[in-house]
Deep mutational scan, measured.
Amino acid sequence: RPMNAFMVWARIHRPALAKANPAANNAEISVQLGLEWNKLSEEQKKPYYDEAQKIKE
């Protein structure tokens, strides 16, 4: 299954978030990633939607 825009973004940002929160488990990191993603504007998300579309094609 191809990655969606959030997954493209999260793949880039997960390592830094995990390093900054070494005690957090994957579920907690995923929740935090979701919160951070939701704070982004549509303009900030656009490159990730574009990349996800390329992956689908």
Score class of each variant (00 low, 15 high):
H13E: 04
K19T: 09
S30R: 13
A10Q: 07
A16N: 08
A16T: 11
P22D: 02
R11V: 14
W9L: 00
P22V: 03
E36M: 15
M7W: 10
E43P: 07
R14H: 05
A5T: 01
N4C: 09
L40Y: 02
E42A: 14
N21S: 06
A27S: 08
I12M: 09
S41M: 05
F6I: 01
I12V: 09
N21D: 05
D50A: 11
V31E: 11
K46G: 04
K54D: 06
P22S: 03
V8L: 08
A20F: 05
A23F: 14
N4M: 11
Q32I: 15
Y48Q: 00
G34Q: 13
N21G: 02
N21R: 06
F6E: 02
I12F: 05
N25A: 06
R1E: 13
N25V: 03
P2D: 12
S41N: 11
E28P: 02
E36L: 15
V8G: 01
N25Q: 06
N25W: 03
E43M: 11
V31A: 14
P47S: 05
L17W: 08
N4S: 13
N21H: 13
R1V: 13
P2W: 11
W37G: 00
G34T: 15
A20E: 10
V31I: 14
N25H: 06
A18T: 13
R11M: 12
L35G: 03
P15V: 13
W37A: 00
S30Y: 14
L17R: 03
N26S: 10
Y48G: 00
A18V: 14
E36V: 09
M3D: 10
A10I: 06
L40C: 02
Y49D: 04
H13N: 10
A16K: 13
A24L: 15
L35R: 12
L35T: 06
A10G: 02
N4R: 04
A52K: 02
A27F: 09
D50T: 08
A27Q: 12
A24E: 02
A23R: 12
P15A: 12
S41I: 03
E28Y: 09
N38I: 10
A23P: 02
A5P: 05
N4K: 06
N26T: 12
A23T: 12
L40F: 03
V8M: 08
A16M: 15
G34K: 15
V8I: 15
K46A: 12
N26P: 14
K54R: 14
L17V: 13
I29D: 01
A52C: 04
K46T: 06
V8F: 11
N21W: 11
R11H: 14
E42N: 12
N38K: 13
E57A: 07
R14C: 09
V31D: 06
M7P: 02
I55Y: 08
L33A: 02
A24S: 09
A18G: 06
R11F: 12
K54G: 06
A20G: 06
A24R: 05
K45Y: 01
V8P: 00
E51W: 11
K46E: 05
K19Q: 12
A18C: 06
I29S: 00
L35I: 14
E57W: 04
L40D: 00
Y49F: 12
Q53F: 05
N26L: 09
M3A: 07
P2G: 09
Q44H: 08
S41A: 08
A18I: 15
E51S: 06
A52S: 05
D50L: 11
L33D: 00
E36H: 10
P47G: 04
I12G: 03
L35Y: 06
A23Q: 13
L40G: 00
N4E: 10
H13V: 11
N4G: 07
Y49P: 00
Y49M: 09
K39D: 05
W9I: 00
V31H: 13
I55W: 06
Q32P: 00
P22I: 03
H13T: 09
A18F: 08
D50E: 10
A24Q: 05
A52Y: 12
L33V: 01
K45P: 01
Y48D: 00
L17Y: 15
I29P: 00
R1A: 14
N38P: 01
V8A: 04
P15F: 07
D50K: 12
I12E: 12
A5N: 01
V31N: 07
Y49L: 06
Q53Y: 06
I55S: 04
P47I: 07
Y48M: 01
Q32L: 15
Q53S: 10
V31T: 11
A10D: 07
I12D: 08
V8S: 04
K54C: 05
Q32F: 13
L35P: 01
A5H: 02
W9M: 00
P22K: 04
N4T: 15
W37R: 00
L33Q: 02
N38G: 13
A18D: 04
M7Q: 05
N26W: 13
G34W: 13
L40E: 01
A23H: 14
R1Q: 13
R14D: 00
A10T: 05
W37S: 00
Y49A: 11
A52W: 12
S30D: 14
A5Y: 01
I29L: 12
N26F: 15
A23K: 13
L35Q: 11
V8C: 07
S30V: 11
H13K: 09
N26Q: 14
E51V: 09
K54W: 08
W37C: 00
N38L: 12
A23V: 07
S41Y: 02
I29F: 02
Q44S: 08
W9N: 00
P22H: 04
S30G: 09
Q32W: 14
I55H: 08
F6V: 01
M7T: 10
W9S: 00
L33N: 00
A24C: 06
Q44I: 05
W37E: 00
A20W: 07
L35M: 10
I12A: 10
P22E: 03
L33C: 04
K45E: 00
R11T: 13
E42R: 13
A27M: 10
I12S: 07
A20N: 06
E57F: 07
A27N: 10
M3F: 12
G34D: 13
V31P: 01
E43N: 09
E57T: 07
H13R: 15
E28W: 15
K39Q: 07
F6Q: 02
K54I: 08
P2Y: 13
A18S: 12
N21K: 05
N25Y: 03
L17P: 01
M3S: 09
E36F: 08
A10H: 02
H13S: 06
E57C: 06
P22W: 03
K19S: 09
A27W: 15
S30K: 11
I55F: 07
G34E: 15
E51G: 03
N4Y: 07
Y49S: 05
K46H: 06
R1G: 10
E43H: 09
E36W: 12
G34M: 15
I55N: 09
Q44N: 05
N4Q: 08
A24M: 15
E36T: 10
M3P: 13
S41V: 03
E51F: 10
N4I: 11
R14K: 09
A16V: 14
L17E: 01
M7K: 07
P15Q: 10
K39N: 08
D50P: 02
M3G: 07
E28M: 13
N38F: 10
K56W: 15
I12C: 04
N4P: 03
L40R: 01
L17T: 04
P2R: 08
A27V: 09
R14G: 13
A20K: 11
R14N: 02
L33Y: 00
K46F: 04
A24T: 04
W9R: 00
E51P: 02
Y49I: 08
W37I: 00
K19H: 09
Q44M: 06
R14T: 04
Q53C: 05
A18W: 08
A16G: 08
R1I: 13
K46V: 06
E57L: 08
P15Y: 07
A10S: 10
K56C: 13
E42S: 11
E36S: 07
P2L: 13
E51R: 11
R1L: 13
M3T: 11
R11D: 15
K39T: 07
L17K: 03
H13G: 02
L17I: 14
V8R: 04
A20R: 11
E57M: 06
R11E: 15
